[in-house]
């Protein structure tokens, strides 16, 4: 089974929500374990998982499906959402605010007690199979004038707020994921947390858990700690010359 280290009671909350067919919203900064958590929960609940990474061009039709021409015939192809509805899967829409707004409109009837997906083109209304669940995620850190989750949408979901875990848990995760020893992981976590102090004060976001795992993997692969930190915690976080210097200083201060 895939490794997931719970931070708090999120597993319990998710399980209960799933049992009651309540859709779930995961919010939190990038690389803090949201996707991992969904994969883990899908395995735990024994349900298939359909993941959709949302981006600007993603329209409702991409989710529901469309007619295609195949050998002179028109054939209907299910989109990922329709597949999930039919299979009783967990449908995970990652970074949902990025998608076009009509995406939310098709999601709505699936999130309340109707649990239906109208397919206008086919002229049918699919009822979701037992086990189907909508999970969406978004990163409130990318605060933007134009993109924001609507209040009415937000209120349709059970929300789980994610953040980077505390020192010990995060070190444990890094050690386990990269297969390195705990002492190394602890040092990396201190660096990561230092950089998070600059979140939206010079750095968009601090180092994610994912980045720390990368750094640990590089060290395990034979790079020196300094070089590994340089390649991940310094250059992956910023292009700005002065922030680069500051991050280097941080690495030096922590590692000695």
């Amino acid at each position: 089974m895939i490794f997931y280290r719970p931070h708090a009671n999120e597993v319990e909350v998710f399980e209960t929500a799933a049992r009651n067919n309540l859709p779930v919203l995961l919010k939190g900064p990038t690389g803090c374990g949201k996707s991992r958590f969904v994969r883990y929960m899908a395995e735990k609940l024994g349900r298939p998982l359909v993941t959709v990474a949302c981006q600007e061009d993603l329209a409702a039709a991409d989710l529901t499906g469309r007619f295609l021409l195949e050998g002179g015939q028109t054939v209907w192809r299910d989109g990922p959402l329709t597949r999930a509805v039919r299979d009783g899967a967990i449908c995970y829409l990652d970074e949902v605010v990025e998608a076009r707004s009509d995406v939310m409109t098709v999601i709505h009837p699936l999130t309340d007690d109707r649990r239906v997906l109208p397919l206008d083109r086919l002229g049918v209304e699919l009822s979701a199979k037992e086990g189907f669940l909508v999970v969406i995620s978004y990163n409130p850190g990318y605060q933007s004038v134009t993109k924001e989750l609507k209040e009415s949408t937000r209120q349709r979901f059970v929300s789980l707020a994610f953040d980077y875990p505390n020192n010990e848990i995060e070190a444990e995760i890094v050690a386990k994921e990269a297969g390195c020893d705990l002492a190394l992981a602890t040092q990396l976590v201190r660096l990561g947390q230092g950089s998070r102090n600059l979140r939206s004060h010079g750095l968009g976001e601090g180092a994610s858990t994912r980045l720390l795992v990368y750094a640990a993997a590089l060290v395990k692969g034979g790079l020196s700690l300094k070089d590994a930190a340089e390649a991940t915690l310094v250059h992956s976080l910023t292009d700005d010359a002065e922030m680069t210097k500051a991050l280097r200083e941080l690495v030096r201060s922590v590692l000695g």
């Binding site: 102090n197 010079g202 922030m243 210097k245 941080l250």
Partner: peptide, 15 residues
Amino acid sequence: QRQLQALLRMLSGHN
């Protein structure tokens, strides 16, 4: 100034 401010903020967690 900017570099120093960033470093001290990261070390201390104070803005």
